[in-house]
Each structure stands twice: as C-alpha cells, then as structure tokens.
Design a binder for these strands. Sequence first.
DNA 1: CTGAATCCAATGCGATACTG
DNA 2: CAGTATCGCATTGGATTCAG
Lengths: 116, 116
Amino acid sequence: MNEAPDQGAEIHVCAVEETIEIIGGKWKCQILHTLQDGTKRFGDLRREIPDVTQRILTRKLRELEDHGVVHRKVYAEVPPRTEYSLTPLGQSLGPVLDALENWAIKSRLSATKAQQ
Amino acid sequence: MNEAPDQGAEIHVCAVEETIEIIGGKWKCQILHTLQDGTKRFGDLRREIPDVTQRILTRKLRELEDHGVVHRKVYAEVPPRTEYSLTPLGQSLGPVLDALENWAIKSRLSATKAQQ
DNA sequence: CTGAATCCAATGCGATACTG
DNA sequence: CAGTATCGCATTGGATTCAG
C-alpha cells in the first residue's frame, strides 16, 4: 500500500516492544539460534529448520537483516550462494534470548505446581 | 471445530517463543509495567494507558491472567470493583523485561552509528 | 541454489454499541 | 464500573508457482 517512508522506525510505546518486534514472530528465534553456531548458507538453514517454507524463511531473514541483527553476503556466482551470519548486534542478543528461555522454563514449573 | 483438548498449551518450537507469546502483543508490556507499581483497578489501568480501548484492555488482561502472570480479584459489589495485580510469576518477569528494554536501547545506538 | 510473485486463510487489533 | 457482542480492517503465516 505504499506506506510512509519511515525508515523502519515503527511507533512503539515502550522499548520492550521494539525488541519483541525484532525477535518475535514465528521462526525468528529458531533462525537466530541456528546462526549462533556460525555462518550458514540458505540451504543449510532450510535443512536445519525443515518446517519453514522457502518464502517465509527468506522473508524472516530479510526482516532480521533489516533490523541489523543478521548479515547477508551474496556471492555473484553460478550457482548462486548466499551466506547468513549474526552481526555483532545479533550476537549481543544471546543473553536476552537466554533470559526469555529461562523464564519460560520457570513458568512451566509454576504451571505444573498450580495444577496439583 | 472441536480441536484437541490441549489445555492452553500451544505448540512452540523453542521456549523463547513461549515467553514472547505471553509478554508479546500490543499493550502487554505496558500493562505489566503499570502493574509493577502495585495493585490497580480496571479504571486505573484505563487512565494510565489511555490509548487502549476497553475491549482490548479486558482481553489483554484476560490473556495475562490465563498465562498466570496477572491476578484478577473481583469484588461482588455494586458498583462492581475489580483489582488487578502481578502474581509472583508476573513479578519475576521484571528482569526479563529489563533485558529486553536495555537491548532495545543498545540497538538504537547501533542504528545511529550505522547511519553516520 | 536462492528467491520473487500471486493468492489465500487465520489471527490480531480496534470502533462502536450495549449490559448488570 | 467493568465488562460483553458484533462487526470490520490490517497484518501475518503459508501453499504454490515461476525465475535468474
């Protein structure tokens, strides 16, 4: 719809929402987790995250790239080759993702206790 | 539709997504932040988060309650009174939200530097 | 091999009006 | 005061097909 040219700057009431917009959405945290192992080609990611379609994987990678957490390097070759890796900013997400994961585990325990 | 009786347990590939499902979504982090001050009535929340409609605020509070991070206490009075507060689990979200917020701030700085 | 184009279904958010 | 009911729009995720 030819929206306004706000260079990726969405309106967020609190900073927390900005981070969630970047790492939220289906597949995003899986992609990030996979890339924490190191640089991967597009086909590698497809193999390691088998349930995502090409289209969606491409789109999610593009979103992560637009937000500066993933770097995309295209080699002008035939057949084409593209390598994805975390930027320094993307690597700095590690502790944040760990915090979210650890809280989820704690949350599960609380839910279990509540059912007893 | 009569889907399977999975008691609110969504299918998530990684734990991170579970946490994001709980605190993600519009207004959620604002509501949590407001409740960190202490117990609030429904009308208090409406006043402190003026841009959310009644309907949405009710729904978001219900979601937070269903996930065990917010407690809802209804007083059988006329006029009705309902008090919302954080559960212990909800209070334990504090550091997680802080991590998300701090990363957002760091992310902004990176973006600024990249434009220069 | 990587990725774009088209089309579609499900969900999320919200405006508005009504109720005990 | 604290909700619920109805309705509509926008966004998201996905299936499928085509292309360099």
